[in-house]
């Protein structure tokens, strides 16, 4: 096995991890701050892809679709938090789980009614088609673009969280919502916005994934379990954990498929089990966090 093959495999693992990071970030941010385990997250990923299809058809421009789909689905997320999730705060943790689980079925069925049970095509934008020589071999240009977009989103998110007042409130709110309330911060508004951002990130992941995979109503199912694995490995509620774990999972899956392709899916779960044995709260999780 030559070095070029191994490095190319490693690189495609990073590209695979990039999409997982988008999903895991939203999942993690919502859990860390709201304490809600969002089982509808994969469905919002799928809805994001369909919103991308819709806006691509409407505007004929991939860039508009990439911008509009996450915004519109994020706004849908705001509505879901306000109308469905908010009444459940203070109730046992299984209540929002049941609600979002049911919601995921509603979203999938809704999309089936609107767009049909079959997949719909989503062409790779013309400018990003083909392969690019990255020194170690040829790699799909579009996947390079995805890595770039995810990197930009991560930097932007980091800047907002670390350098702005809003970010300060978000971080403080995650630690102790009670004190934040006492200090006069409107915690409900904060939760609303955080949920919207988490959903928007899932939708962005969906649009980004659309040209790589076909768009279909079930595309969110498998990806949800992958995203859960990533958040658990990274530590529930830890953003840095999501990023590191997303990359690690992508690389583990890809390196396994180099030696034993049949084991690729299992490798992800075995890796999770291994991490949990050594660090029961995940790589960057804190004991008892978020409960």
């Amino acid at each position: 096995m030559d070095l070029q093959l191994i490095s190319l495999q490693l690189f495609s693992g990073i590209a695979l991890g990039a999409i997982l990071i988008m999903l895991a970030l939203g999942l993690s941010i919502i859990f860390g701050i709201l304490g809600v385990v969002n089982f509808a997250h994969g469905s919002f990923f799928m809805v994001g892809a369909y919103a991308g299809v819709f806006f691509l058809g409407y505007t004929g421009n991939f860039w508009w679709a990439l911008l509009l789909a996450p915004l519109v689905v994020g706004v849908l997320g705001l509505g879901v938090e306000r109308l469905l999730i908010r009444p459940l705060y203070g109730r046992p943790v299984d209540d929002p789980i049941l609600l979002t689980f049911g919601l995921s079925y509603v979203l999938v069925e809704g999309v089936r009614i609107l767009f049909g049970t079959d997949g719909v095509p989503f062409d790779t934008p013309a400018a990003l088609r083909g392969v690019t020589n990255i020194g170690i071999g040829y790699f799909p240009t579009y996947r390079l673009f995805v890595i770039g977009v995810v990197a930009v989103v991560l930097v932007a998110l980091w800047l907002v969280l670390e350098k702005t007042k809003v970010g300060l409130i978000v971080r403080a709110g995650a630690r102790d919502p009670q004190i934040m309330r006492v200090l006069g911060v409107d915690i409900q508004k904060l939760w609303l916005v955080v949920f919207g951002i988490g959903i928007g990130l899932a939708a962005l992941g969906g649009v980004l994934a659309a040209p790589m995979r076909t768009v279909n109503p079930e595309m969110g199912n498998f990806v949800l379990s992958e995203a859960f694995v990533v958040t658990v490995i990274g530590g529930m509620g830890s953003l840095l954990g999501s990023v590191v774990a997303g990359l690690l999972v992508g690389i583990v899956v890809n390196m396994t498929s180099l030696v034993a392709p049949e084991m690729a899916t299992i490798a992800m779960f075995a890796f999770m089990a291994l991490v949990l044995l050594v660090r029961p709260h995940g790589l960057f999780g804190k004991p008892g966090f978020g409960t």
């Binding site: 495609s12 695979l16 071999g137 995979r213 498998f222 990806v223």
Partner: peptide, 20 residues
């Protein structure tokens, strides 16, 4: 011969090997 799991959404993991 490369076997992939049923219902896999992403095949990038298998491509470098198939190319080689």
């Amino acid at each position: 011969e490369v076997l992939h799991p049923f219902g896999a959404p992403d095949y990038s993991a298998f491509m470098p090997r198939l190319m080689s």
